[in-house]
Design a protein around this nucleic acid. Structure first.
Lengths: 341, 341
DNA sequence: TTGTATGCGTTATCAC
DNA sequence: GTGATAACGCATACAA
């Protein structure tokens, strides 16, 4: 019942040639006659031959496997990045192994090890929020294994990165709010040691500066940026009695939380308070009003990360200089921030 | 620079024993003394030994890799299922390879082949909407490769499945609307040959029947169930002039589209029209009003699917009887359907 | 408890 | 253009 596995030797036997010839035929080796090649392909098909990549991988010392580590797959942004990576990788006959760290350093290290044992040819990583030391990644590089960081990155590892210009995104969102007439703009951010949040924050501050609006630290709230955190921050903000006319949240989820609380207080959006988020999560177009946000082009980010990866992979030895690719974000203006409809 | 790979032979040499002993020590083989085992582990650590799963996989004939094929990763439901699978798999030292078919049969076949070449030990699949023949899966089974279907399944392949009781979900949602006083309930569905949509539709019909509400075919709209499809269907529905007081959409996205159009027509939700969706996508709690929907417990589904898979895997030869595990859905009642607040 | 020998399926290297 | 042989790193049947 359990059909014996057919190997190149079976093909060879059938055609009365050797396995090496079969191997060459199957791999488009130039040193092979058209006729035998055709015969091999035909025999392979008729025998229902299924190549064993494992064996080839062992022999060649490469597995055609790429590992990806993301904080969580359950986020439109990350799953879209993965999709971008897959698109490029699959075209080159690479498969992708996805793992999620759940923002946990221990997991990050364990997963990295598991991927190494699986002999992936390289790794793409978006670093967890709480990761503060990067030795596990550094030792990866020492072993000569290609590593590309994306979105949540760090400059402490000398390797290629792909990010969007979070600074610009933060700047544009804030500038847009200012142009809508807002002058007291609150900001929701995450722990600012994570590059992306720090940059968005910087963009926010610089936009204020450009338009000579005084920066007020008491309008900046740090949290974990989930929906509930957004709710909490908004409640706190309201309870201070401090005046504000807009919120720029560095996360769509926290912005959604803010929207809920504002509505519960019968505060009009955008008339009383204008609102902008970050990431262009799909739900932001469903909210009422639809949420102004910043698109990060995640699929493109994945594609670029993958290309960056293969560049390193194919430049074996010729020690490549780490590239930092910066993609442009795009401000998506929707009703939540449009004062003069 | 590029540190030579250390193998079990290196460990063996260092301790002046043989590779087989090292192998046994590393694999918790009982036939090994505690002392040598400890020595091996110590040496492995000091040499920074990284086991080569590929070689082991080739030798053992199993790769510790599971393939998953989903229509799209970019959906909270599917990415949560994947997460559930990962949780179980990783605990057993299995890795997961994810691929997306984009609802395309050709892709499904190609990806399946790629996974086979990668020598996965088995495959979990949620079938694409347009897949109508299943030969590629049948031949998988013939080869003795474990296959588990989840969510989008079919009974045409004799293999284990994990689904939720879509019928019940459809029934409960409809019954809930009826209990809110609705009697003219429209239904948005997908091509009904996909099991899950057919079942939800059946649940809808039977609930009507139970409460002696006449079924009206002209209130049922078939579409692809994206946001825009939901918009279109709602517009059509409104343009017919036909009276209705509720919509039960078999997809949250189409429900979100319906919500938009209703609001654009200044129709009050739920007072004029009550609304219910299906899947409990995260955004459903953000909409205004929040959307009543049906939770499918995707993480649990992934876990069960994985367990189901390992059951097959570990019962090698002892031909297992295909199990069909049916999980219970849960109706999540929110403001979009609550008439008496 | 340990060592010896062999093979998993493929490809690289050499020879012809 | 094709064949013979070895090797990738590991696990196992068998022998000791």
């Amino acid at each position: 019942m359990t059909s014996k596995k057919v190997t190149i030797h079976d093909i060879a036997k059938k055609l009365d040639i050797t396995a090496s010839t079969v191997s060459r035929a199957l791999n488009n080796n130039p040193r092979i006659s058209e006729t035998t090649k055709k015969a091999v392909l035909e025999a392979a098909r008729s025998l229902n031959y299924q190549p064993n990549n494992l064996a080839a991988a062992l022999r060649k010392g490469k597995s055609q496997l790429i590992g990806i580590i993301v904080p969580t797959i359950n986020r439109s942004f990350f799953s879209s990045v993965i999709r971008g990576v897959e698109e490029v990788a699959n075209k080159l006959d690479y498969r992708v192994i996805v793992s999620q760290s759940n923002e946990n350093v221990e997991n990050e290290i364990a997963l990295l090890n598991a991927l190494l044992n699986a002999r992936v040819d390289g790794v793409l990583v978006s670093i967890g929020k709480n990761t503060e030391h990067f030795d596990h990644y550094k030792s990866l590089l020492k072993k000569g294994i290609p590593l590309v960081l994306f979105d949540r990155t760090t400059n402490e590892i000398g390797t290629s990165q792909v990010i969007i210009d979070d600074y610009l995104g933060g700047f544009q969102a804030t500038e847009h709010l200012i142009k809508q007439g807002c002058t007291k703009i609150a900001h929701f951010t995450n722990v600012k040691l994570v590059n992306i949040y720090h940059e968005r924050y910087r963009g926010y501050k610089n936009a204020l500066e450009k338009y000579q609006i005084p920066f007020d630290d008491s309008l900046v709230y740090e949290s974990n940026m989930q929906l509930d955190d957004g709710r909490e921050c908004t409640k706190k903000l309201l309870s201070t009695g401090k005046e504000f006319d807009a919120i720029f949240s560095a996360s769509d989820y926290a912005a959604a939380g803010a929207m809920q609380v504002l509505k519960e207080h019968h505060i009009k959006i955008p008339e009383d308070i204008a609102l902008a988020g970050f990431s262009n999560e799909p739900f932001t177009s469903f909210t009422d009003p639809p949420l102004t946000t910043v698109s990060q082009f995640p699929i493109e980010m994945g594609q670029v990360a993958a290309e960056s990866f293969f560049e390193i992979l194919n430049s074996k030895k010729k020690k490549i200089i780490p590239q930092k690719t910066v993609l442009q974000p795009e401000l998506i203006i929707r009703a939540s921030s449009l004062k003069n409809g």
